[in-house]
Structure formats: structure tokens, C-alpha cells
Design a protein around this nucleic acid. Sequence first.
DNA 1: AGGACTTTGTGAACGGGAGAACAAACTGAG
DNA 2: CTCAGTTTGTTCTCCCGTTCACAAAGTCCT
Lengths: 231, 231
Amino acid sequence: MAPLPGWKVGLVSARTADSARDIPEATVARLPVYLRALTTLVDNGTATCSSEELAAAAGVNSAKLRKDLSYLGSYGTRGVGYDVDYLRYQIAREIGVTQDWPVVIVGIGNLGHALANFSGFRSRGFRVVALLDADPDRRGERVAGIDVRDFADLEPIVREHGVAIGVIATPASAAQDVADQMVEAGIRSILNFAPIVISVPDGVDVRKVDLSIELQILAYHEQRKQSEATA
Amino acid sequence: MAPLPGWKVGLVSARTADSARDIPEATVARLPVYLRALTTLVDNGTATCSSEELAAAAGVNSAKLRKDLSYLGSYGTRGVGYDVDYLRYQIAREIGVTQDWPVVIVGIGNLGHALANFSGFRSRGFRVVALLDADPDRRGERVAGIDVRDFADLEPIVREHGVAIGVIATPASAAQDVADQMVEAGIRSILNFAPIVISVPDGVDVRKVDLSIELQILAYHEQRKQSEATA
DNA sequence: AGGACTTTGTGAACGGGAGAACAAACTGAG
DNA sequence: CTCAGTTTGTTCTCCCGTTCACAAAGTCCT
């Protein structure tokens, strides 16, 4: 993930971080998708690709892809396409996954287990530095090679490792309290898997993943399909 | 979840299913959130609530909430607010969670385990009728009280239970094949947890949940916050 | 009954994102 | 060097979703 020799370093330094302002939120949400598609292409040994190919791999329109990439800068070559490895690095840098992000996971139930073992985090620069649970029975348990520790240890852990991102995988009843303490400890970005809306002060980002909501959206469309079929 | 006596059944029958056409996608995605907020209010013994209260519980603007609900019909009372139990039923019916949705989960790794044990599915009308895995070593294993069966059994299971929704929790390498076979077996709605874009024929809905993408979006904003702080 | 007050439902203005379409820029052959 | 072919970057238009603001419609108190 380090810049390779031969890359257009001049261009990189010409585009300093401050010129990367105001990338639309919709684009930011798609950049990780492009990143994954590019990684797949690299693994296949592909050196160059057109916006059409990359768009197909990412499941989007090629015009949209080009517009998204244009917010980052001009990293393609007209008449040729994009250098896969170079573009991948640029997107990774823009998102911030070239650096190491220490993460804590709170709530080591079924979901917490799955998250702790999820290899997709590690491979994208996210390092789980601690697993916390309020239940004393879980202490000492070892999950994914990490000891489960007391939730009360949150603050020193955050301070020691410089943790900026916290993951909530607790039941809904505990989520708000966990979020409050995370904020208190200095965490400013939270990924919430608990099925409840948590409120946080300004300046703290929360993203929510709700498994049952996705299924319900599918159910709605399925119901429509079925009622249309019978009509 | 059954209609209670005393509810405005007249209105319900006046608004037949076909009048519920073209609800905006953004609204559909929020209805499950409202449903959950209303369920919480019911559990607290709240009988009536204003759009302001419900919007706060759901984490949205009250004007947006009212407009969303207006797509379903006029279920509120001006000057008073909404009957919590009544509105909850109307939303549940609109989404389709008043009926029973049989679901199969394919891929019983860490995430499959967590999904199989996730109580939020069951409580919203989703019933896991089968767990499937291609790995013979997993056969006979019992997860959440359900035997893990051979992936080759997919088609008869779908036919027998009338399964319309499938969940993919396999590694990325297997996901496209699993999706193909699901479509072949008659499934028309797929929830995909594998980190890859799968392609399906027209008429099949796919929703994607990618845990690492959410973290990457947080990382982007966190990076911005940190670079602003040092500037 | 009447008037003050509350809250819904919706029309209208506004902003942002999606997609089409094209000019600019590069390659490569002759 | 020139010209045909290719692909990017960007402009323009359209559409969807959000938000404001207010009329309509109900409640409650006197």
C-alpha cells in the first residue's frame, strides 16, 4: 500500500489534501466499492482498465464512475484508461485506508464474534485493538486472538492506542450508554449495529447498520411483486 | 400484530393495496425505522404521539416523517397526533411484515452463525427455514436449533417452504454461484453480505450489506476531521 | 357556540445527484 | 506529421428527495 517507485508522485504532491475538499457524500460512499473492484483487478494481474470495465466491476454507470473519480483529480489518461495500481492507491489515500486505524468493538455476542473474526477489516487498515463487554462472564474469553476486557477499560485503551473509531455490537438497551462513554473517552466515529437510534454531540459521526431493516426493504418489494403477479 | 377491534377498519379497507403504489424508495427505506420506533413506544405504554416525537425517536426531521407517512394515507389526527398502535399496524402491513417470510441462509461461517442467531429476524416475521453450506464438514452441525444442510438441497427447500428471500453469507468467491442457484431455485430477493457485486436477471432484487465499506466511510470523515484539526 | 391553540397533510421552492452527450486529449498507424 | 480511433473529464439537463411554510382540521376551555 506504500507508493511505488515510478508512480506519478509529482501529481500526488501537486494535489495536496486541502484540494480534496467537498467530495459529495454519495461519491464517498462509492469510493470503497471502487477500491475493492480495483483490488480484484490487481489480483487478476490487470494493469490498465477503462472506466467502462471498472464501472461494470463496481456495478455502476460508467459516467457516474468518471464523475466520481473527477472529484479526486485527473488520474486517468484519455484514450487509454486508468492505471489500476495507481488509481487504487489514490482512492485508498483519499479514503484514508493507507494509514492504520485502531478500532474497539464493544459487545461480544454473536455479532461481536463475527466482527472480531472478520478479515475484511484487517485487510483494509482497520486493526481491532480491544474487545470489550460489560458481562463479567465473558472476561478472559479469547476471541480472534484478543482477550475480552472490561468495558470500564475503554478510556485508557482509547488513550493508549489513539482509537478514533468504535463499533457498537451490543443489545439496543445498552447502545446509548456505550455511545456516551465512547464519546466521553474521545471516540469521534461510531459504527452502530444495535437496532436503535443513538444520539451524539455535534462533531461525532455515527453510521448505522441494521440487518433486519435490509430484509424488511426486500420484503416490501417482494410483497409488491407477489401482489402484482396475482393481479 | 393482528388488527385490533376499535381500529379504523373502514379506512383500511378504503385504502386497498393497489392505492399504495409508487412509494418513493427513500421512504420505503425509512419505514422500518419508524416501525421500530413505534414498537418501542408501544412497549413503553405510549398510546399517542406527535410527528415531532416520533421523528425524534426515529432520528429524522418531523416534516420528512409526515411526508413519508402521507404516502401511506392519512392515519393521523390533526391537533392530536398518531395512534401509536394503529400506525404501527399500518406500516407493518405496508412493508409486509404482518405476514410470515421464510428465509434461507447460505454460508454458515462466523457471519452466518450470527445471522442465524439474530433475534431481530424472527420478531419481524422472518423465519429461517434452512441453513446451507457447501462444506461437508459443517453438515449435521446445529446452529440456532437448525441443522446445517447441503447447499445442493436448496431447490427442494425453496419449493417446499415457498422461500422468496435468500441471504448470502459466503466468501466472495462463492457468492455469484450461490446467487445464480438461488435465482434458479426461484428466489427473487437476495440480501448479500459477501464483499462482491453480484449480477442477477431483471426482476430479482439484491441488497448489499458491506461491513468494511461502512468503516471506510467513517475513516474518510475521521481523516478529514483530523487534518482539519491540525490545520 | 366560539375562539385560541395544536398538529397534520401538502403545495412549492430548493438542492444534490444521475445520466446523456460532447469537447479535449492521448495513442498509434501510415 | 497527420488523421482516425479511443477514452477521459466536464457541462448541461432532468429528476428525486428534502425542507419550508401554511392552510385545513381537529381539540379544549370558557
